[in-house]
Design a protein around this nucleic acid. Sequence first.
DNA 1: CTTGCCCCTGACACCGATGTGAACGTTTAG
DNA 2: CTAAACGTTCACATCGGTGTCAGGGGCAAG
Lengths: 129, 129
Amino acid sequence: MRIGELSARTGVSRRMLRYYEDQGLLVSSRSPSGQRHYEDAHVERVRLVQAFLAAGMSSGTIAEMVPCMAEPSRRGARRALAVMDHERARLSSAMDGLTAARSALDQLIEVNRTYLAEPHLAEPPDGTP
Amino acid sequence: MRIGELSARTGVSRRMLRYYEDQGLLVSSRSPSGQRHYEDAHVERVRLVQAFLAAGMSSGTIAEMVPCMAEPSRRGARRALAVMDHERARLSSAMDGLTAARSALDQLIEVNRTYLAEPHLAEPPDGTP
DNA sequence: CTTGCCCCTGACACCGATGTGAACGTTTAG
DNA sequence: CTAAACGTTCACATCGGTGTCAGGGGCAAG
């Protein structure tokens, strides 16, 4: 398929697909005239890239793992594995961070909700400038 | 304490502390001469802000919750609570995203590690440009 | 009083990263 | 042939973060 269809299937704009390729996050085969061609597998590949990006991985980091997504262990696999291990640890600690942030937020929410529920304050409208 | 000490205690530069205040992430009381003065509680407040920023909250979002950090439920508490609920959901789904990304990464790691462990490939040096 | 250290505001510039718009030329498909 | 789809490229925007410089004040020890 060409870029338009991949875009339609993934919901990612043509613009971004080219941008991803630019950053080395996606690889396409080109027709003689230069048009990008993709296979079905690329649909999932795009989703994977998006998941990784959403997880806060940098483009560069993902780019280093790309060879391993295409086919298992070509040149650079060792390096990629190192990156992946490192990144796995990063993800784990990011999860810890999120958990901590959410706990703090929960606490903040509870304190304030409790306080707001108390009867002793006479400012129910809350629109007092 | 003044800004220098807060900076020393939190590891956040004076520059950034002023910047945070600029963005509405931090509130200071001022001496008659305009110098910022903080209490011990602000040390933790700074850490909280950093945790929230690290959790991917925008400055604007955090700014809206700030009144609730200082003292429970002043004006704007209702709005802040709405923001907090919304943000809590965002954090939760971000955690889901991280979990999914990590799973995908684990799979990628395993496939490649397995492949790399196979005996049939004769490219151990891996340094072939 | 002077010296030295800390602080204030405001501005200008710059970074790296992600993401977009738009212009303009080429290729493909009906 | 024409229109839709594609290609490249340049510029711009946002966001968080930083360095730095200028010009002014606060405050305590010597």
